[in-house]
């Protein structure tokens, strides 16, 4: 299981694991997509982008924020998100479907990704990070 939800009263807190940073970033994005919409599939939409930041946490923060932005302004529901991390840069290919009121009404709006407690650590399971979404 690449992610689990932790208890948080006001917002949504998830813990994500990955053997590599590529996996961690991909799993974090997939977990975010699952928080937002129940019904997701790959159906003809693909976006690619690259981002650079000063440190891995900022990179993860900016990467997830970019996906939120794209999802909202281009009305996309993402389902399969692949990240490749090279140094301080992430390259992303995200696939999904156009937002459809019938399938996606009632989704959860994530307002932002918090820096609170956002620390990528090395454990015996690989990389681990807790991410707090303001909903």
């Amino acid at each position: 299981m690449p992610h689990t939800e932790l208890e948080h009263t006001a917002d949504i807190l998830i813990r994500v694991w990955g053997q590599t940073l590529d996996e961690l970033f991909s799993d974090a994005a997939t977990a975010m997509a699952a928080v937002m919409f129940e019904h997701r599939r790959c159906a003809g939409v693909e976006k690619t982008f690259s981002l650079t930041a000063d440190d891995p946490e900022s990179l993860l923060h900016d990467f997830l924020s970019e996906l939120l932005f794209l999802s909202e302004v281009e009305s996309i529901v993402f389902s399969d998100i692949r990240a490749r991390v090279e140094g301080n840069t992430v390259h992303c290919t995200a696939r999904g479907e156009p937002f459809s009121p019938e399938r996606h009404r009632g989704g959860t709006e994530i307002k932002g990704i918090s820096y609170s407690g956002l620390r990528i650590i090395n454990t015996d399971k690989g990389y681990q990070v807790d991410i707090l979404f303001d909903v």
């Binding site: 000063d54 900022s58 900016d62 924020s65 302004v73 307002k111 932002g112 990704i113 820096y115």
Partner: peptide, 17 residues
């Protein structure tokens, strides 16, 4: 709405530095 969410996201980055 999204406008406010994005203002927070953008300026958080600036203020982080």
């Amino acid at each position: 709405r999204g406008l406010g969410h994005q203002v927070c996201t953008d300026h958080l980055k600036v203020l982080d530095k």
